[in-house]
Amino acid sequence: MPINYFLILSAFLFCAGAYGVVARRNSVLVLMSVELMLNAVNINLVAFSTGLHDVAGQVFALFVITIAAAEVGIGLAIVLLIFRNLRSPDLDRVEQLKG
């Protein structure tokens, strides 16, 4: 089976995630798009792990899954903070860098 199938599927997911990060206004949806991009990276890692007969790619995919979980936890805490301070989860209302 050509390894390109998996790589192009992963590239598609990555580009969809990149579109979502830029075009979405709701912060929870931006976090979901970031998950989409991380997932695309995981598919690449596992595809090369199987293609090159080396288990290291799967180990790194596990690390990426762990870090994605940590990132969502912190990200949703920040989203809640934004919502509490601005009464809205929209990211384009976050425009002050100095309190």
């Binding site: 580009c15 990149a18 579109y19 830029v22 075009a23 979405r24 206004r25 990211l91």
Partner: peptide
Amino acid sequence: LDNDQRLASGVVSLFL
């Protein structure tokens, strides 16, 4: 739910 950068980001991600 979306901002007004939809067209530009669509072009960018299709190009990517």
